[in-house]
Nucleic acid binder design. Structure first.
Length: 219
DNA sequence: CTCCCGATAT
DNA sequence: ATATCAGGAG
């Protein structure tokens, strides 16, 4: 038969994985540049399917020109579009950021909301981005951030067999203690960028090699 | 499911 | 030339 029948209950050495990640990605944090939750929210919206490095190129001028939600809500959409033109999906992202700024200015008193329900109502923000803002911006461990890196690593390491990011998140939340969720997200992303890359995983130099079933798939 | 869509790595 | 990048909306 396929994979050993104890698929889910095996609790794949979660503690050892945490220790190994801690050792090699102990100081992992977001690579996005931000000074307050509002800036983090904008950076996260821009970061969809884009490198953090590129996002960090456009956000400083952006925040210098339009410091807060009210400023951005009053901005000309064409100007905003031009300001983020080097980022992918810039047309949609400009609309989303402008609309989110307007909603926050008008309905949230200019403050970024701090609940999952309110955050996902913002244009351009779904569960993954909301988890970023809640976890990194507000220090609230509501969930695990499952982006392209975390999803890929979770599947390769045998921690989840799902493709749906929400289901992967559920698996990770069940495997790891809540206290580690925010840091774990950053550590996995770090590891995904540096070692367990999408194209060609560098298993030879991977500190988690002995903990990995090496089910290197392509999804 | 498709569309959005620039910059960089391979 | 093609795959990938802190995804989300219609």
């Amino acid at each position: 038969m396929n994979k050993s029948s104890n698929s889910l209950s095996e609790a794949p050495h979660a503690r050892q994985i945490l220790q190994a990640l801690k050792k090699h990605h102990g100081k992992a944090e977001t690579a996005l540049a931000w000074d307050n939750p509002w800036q983090l929210l904008v950076a996260v919206i821009l970061s969809a399917q884009c490198t953090d490095e590129r996002v960090n190129l456009v956000t400083p001028p952006l925040f210098a020109k339009w410091p807060g939600p009210g400023d951005l809500a009053a901005a000309d959409l064409e100007d905003l579009r031009a300001a983020i033109a080097s980022v992918n999906f810039y047309n949609n992202k400009a609309k989303h950021i402008h609309a989110a700024a307007t909603l926050i200015a008008e309905k949230h008193g200019g403050e970024v909301p701090q609940t999952m329900e309110e955050l996902v109502e913002l244009p351009g923000v779904a569960r993954k981005s909301a988890n970023c803002v809640l976890g990194t911006g507000f220090g609230m461990a509501v969930g695990v951030v499952v982006d392209t890196h975390v999803g890929r690593l979770a599947r390769r390491m045998g921690l989840s067999e799902h493709k749906d990011p929400v289901k992967v998140e559920k698996d990770l939340m069940a495997l790891f203690p809540k206290k580690q969720w925010v840091w774990l997200s950053h550590a996995l992303i770090d590891h995904g960028r540096a070692v367990c890359t999408s194209r060609k995983a560098k298993c030879e130099e991977c500190p988690l090699e002995s903990l990995c079933p090496k089910l290197i798939d392509n999804s």
